[in-house]
Nucleic acid binder design. Sequence first.
DNA 1: CAAGAATGTCGTATGTTTACGTCATACTTC
DNA 2: GAAGTATGACGTAAACATACGACATTCTTG
Lengths: 116, 116
Amino acid sequence: MTYAKLSGFTEEQQQLSRLAKVLAHPARVAIVQLLASKTTCISGDIAAELPLSRTTVSQHLQELKALDLIRGDIDGLTVCYCLNTELWAQAQSMFAAFFAQATTTTACGPADPCGC
Amino acid sequence: MTYAKLSGFTEEQQQLSRLAKVLAHPARVAIVQLLASKTTCISGDIAAELPLSRTTVSQHLQELKALDLIRGDIDGLTVCYCLNTELWAQAQSMFAAFFAQATTTTACGPADPCGC
DNA sequence: CAAGAATGTCGTATGTTTACGTCATACTTC
DNA sequence: GAAGTATGACGTAAACATACGACATTCTTG
């Protein structure tokens, strides 16, 4: 009974952590930025611009794909990866809501018993 | 030479992934939300509201503390944990900048060679 | 100062992620 | 259809994350 006690947390918390996990590796951040900056993307090109092997990049792409954050359309011999902008907009608002909570806390003001 | 080839990614990408990693577990998301919602927090109380043992919660708190996202002031026998709102605001703007990129991509429009 | 209470630290078992080489598959082109 | 090319799938080793019980530490209180 070790690891991942997912039940016990709200679906919202799990969803946010899933999204965060995708961004928890610089390679995936870089991949998303690359896809956002280009008008056409091909898997091989992505690996060429990262300090990782093609195999590893493909694995990271799979993780992004698993959450449907990117889409890959096969075009003959190459694959055109692109961002699913609707889902990213959704993720954006989830994070925005979370950060709004975290930055507007009323705790630890001057009237608080603790000294921080 | 496995794992974490951190060099090769920009400092910005590494910073964003570090922040994302902290939120990549529902327990830490829940902890931050708890801290944000209360005006006074004590470590024991936090564990009481989560489906995790006190030890595990303490470990998650350490990870938040390692990035200076929370602060814990010892007040006698108890500890008052609270959010470092300045850092959270900083994190907020980093994520906002990233999502702005991800949601405004011009790729895969109607004029694009790929069909997606 | 002894007893109790609130937390952090350590050790450890288990699950997960990362990274990459090698192989299999699918498409183009001659 | 044979040769070449672009990708994904599989297998595997090492690093890391998660969870928790047991112990140590520190403070209060009588």
